[in-house]
């Protein structure tokens, strides 16, 4: 038992007078006045309504303007089906390609030191900086009949421009940064410690990648793939340049919408457009779910 030599004396001071009660309801010091908050929220909502919700509603309204029968017919029409098939094919090739490339590039940049690293980072951003039309023109210049490789390709009877390979190349080029851009900061933030400790525990590079690196960036990777996918489906500019607009053969969904629109078939154009819109909405929902999940994981990790 411990004994202190100083003894506590009963409080001699009278209790402090209560602070004057604030006139209005208490507000956190960091909060704005209610009218400021509500005005800002109203402005934001009005803006969203005019520029996002109304156009979206207009697409569906336009699609069904002449009845559900025409809607279904314009989707079932062979050219439309070909466009849908082509779009899905392009996505099925370019997204996995960019997934592999993005992971490889992000891994190299985040975990290793090498000469020309900053140049590679700049290069990855190039498709974002260049207008899609110019991206398309690059491929025409390379593979077109009058292009650098054109004569050689012609001799060997390989068609790239005005054919499916050109559309895939252009789409892959435009959507190339999404996965890498999403992963690089994530991997850099996580550092090399976990990989190094896996190595000291006897794991080889492959095991380290599959069992440590990849699970750590899983959600970021899925997010990157979703964005990449959305862009690959909707890409117009670059694809328009290399496609040649051959109906039923080289028209993707966005190109098909444009053709229908130019032919004054508004209802059909909107019908196909509504399919694309629907895909976009599904993408957004999946993205929100993933964001919500990562956020929850992060919050749980913080505890």
């Amino acid at each position: 038992m411990s004994v202190t030599t100083t003894t506590a004396r009963p409080a001699a001071h009278p209790p402090a007078a209560p602070l004057p009660r604030p006139r209005r309801a208490r507000r956190l010091a960091t909060e704005e006045a209610p009218w400021v908050r509500y005005t800002l929220i109203t402005i934001a909502l009005l803006f969203l309504l005019c520029f996002l919700v109304l156009p979206l509603a207009a697409v569906f309204a336009g699609a069904f303007a002449q009845g559900a029968g025409l809607y279904l017919e314009s989707i079932r029409e062979p050219d439309a089906l070909a466009a849908i098939r082509l779009t899905l094919t392009v996505v099925a090739i370019s997204v996995p390609a960019n997934l592999v490339f993005g992971v490889a590039a992000a891994w190299a940049i985040a975990k290793f030191e090498f000469r020309g690293k900053s140049f590679l980072i700049t290069l990855i951003d190039l498709p974002f900086a260049i207008s899609p039309v110019i991206a398309g023109l690059i491929f025409v210049l390379l593979f077109g009949a009058q292009g650098w490789l054109g004569p050689w390709l012609g001799e060997h009877n390989i068609r790239i421009i005005f054919a499916v390979p050109g559309i895939v190349l252009a789409t892959a080029f435009v959507t190339f940064p999404f996965v890498a851009r999403e992963l690089i900061p994530l991997m850099q933030e996580q550092g090399k410690d976990e990989e190094e400790s896996a190595l000291t525990l006897g794991a080889n590079g492959w095991q380290t990648f599959w069992r440590v690196t990849l699970p750590n960036v899983k959600w970021g990777l899925i997010y990157g793939v979703i964005l990449c996918n959305a862009r690959a489906m909707g890409e117009f500019g670059a694809v328009a340049v290399v496609s040649g607009h051959i109906r039923g053969i080289t028209t993707t969904m966005p190109l098909h919408v444009e053709i229908l629109y130019n032919e004054y078939q508004f209802a059909a154009a909107f019908a196909v457009a509504s399919l694309l819109t629907l895909l976009a909405i599904v993408t957004l929902v999946v993205k929100s779910v993933i964001e919500w999940k990562t956020d929850r994981r992060r919050r749980r990790a913080a505890h």
Binding site: D193, E194, E196, S197, L199, T200, L201, G202, R211, N216
Partner: peptide
Amino acid sequence: VSHRGVGFVFQHYALFKH
């Protein structure tokens, strides 16, 4: 590294979070 038979403990633990 993986064949040296050394155990390494990092300052910030470097545990596998997942």
